[in-house]
Design a protein around this nucleic acid. Structure first.
Lengths: 143, 143
DNA sequence: CCGATAGCAAGAACTATTCTAAATTCACGC
DNA sequence: GCGTGAATTTAGAATAGTTCTTGCTATCGG
């Protein structure tokens, strides 16, 4: 997602389509805290296990709900490699992901300074990009 | 996948790790033909429906097997948007995909001439890229 | 405090995909 | 042409990550 963070904002104005604010419940706060605390791109299940330390009664479904809410409100990005379980990333800067086949670790990959995606891609005429996903797979040669 | 096409090649030399050639069965040929005939990034199920015209008794599992074999041998690329059903693309040039939210159509997106991914990304030191996936979502403004 | 709305929990349901086991096909040497 | 072993196909069962349903609970505005 391109950054458009929104946490608690002004009260609803009554205008129909206004995106609603995210209510920060105990569960959502804990899920978000867990994501910030250890930025290793955990799966929903990983998050579930970590959140249980603070909220032993939380259910996996709630973790999914919370992650969805956080993603929807652009506090967190969902990262998908092929059809593996989704992973979650609190880094909101535009960046890609490098999956190391040897270790399984996913590294954030930034653009070189000054580079914009639209500068390097031949986009369809009139294309308005709402979402960018760049996923790399490979290995870290030790040489 | 980075291009490394291999269809029928020379007979096996006896060397252990040589990647084996792809045996072109009726089913695989038909699946491949269908992908080349209509390059609209069909799902496995779409392919299944199309292949049935020529091979009415083919099973969905076989279509999955064939697609996997074709992907494995770099004749076809698998395209994943989030966790939606995988789509299949016979375009082997390095390119990305733009998913139009309004129509659902997926467009191929080429790099501007002369641009290499490594030129624009800050890769981890020593990273060897085996596979690149660039997925965009947005709309085609009619203006 | 009251009613309405949003969120939570537990488990069932869903669905794209993979696996299993048995039957078929194929390449190849004879 | 024909047997043989390996690869492939098939149909259906199984899997797994995720989403849905239902009833309960918390929260908010008034």
């Amino acid at each position: 997602m391109l950054a458009k963070p929104s946490i608690k904002r002004s009260a609803n104005t009554g205008i129909a389509d206004e995106p609603s604010e995210l209510r920060m419940t105990r569960q959502r706060r804990e899920v978000y805290r867990v994501l910030l605390a250890q930025r290793d791109h955990p799966t929903a299940y990983d998050v579930f296990m970590r959140v249980k330390d603070g909220l032993p009664h939380i259910s996996l479904a709630t973790v999914y709900n919370c992650l969805e809410a956080l993603v929807e409100h652009d506090l967190v990005r969902q990262v998908n490699f092929d059809r593996e379980p989704s992973r979650y990333c609190p880094n909101l800067e535009e960046h890609g992901h490098f999956h190391d086949r040897d270790t399984g670790v996913i590294h954030d990959v930034k653009f070189k300074p000054g580079i914009k995606l639209a500068d390097v891609l031949d986009l369809p005429h009139g294309a308005v990009i709402q979402d960018v996903e760049i996923n790399l797979r490979g290995q870290l040669s030790l040489a």
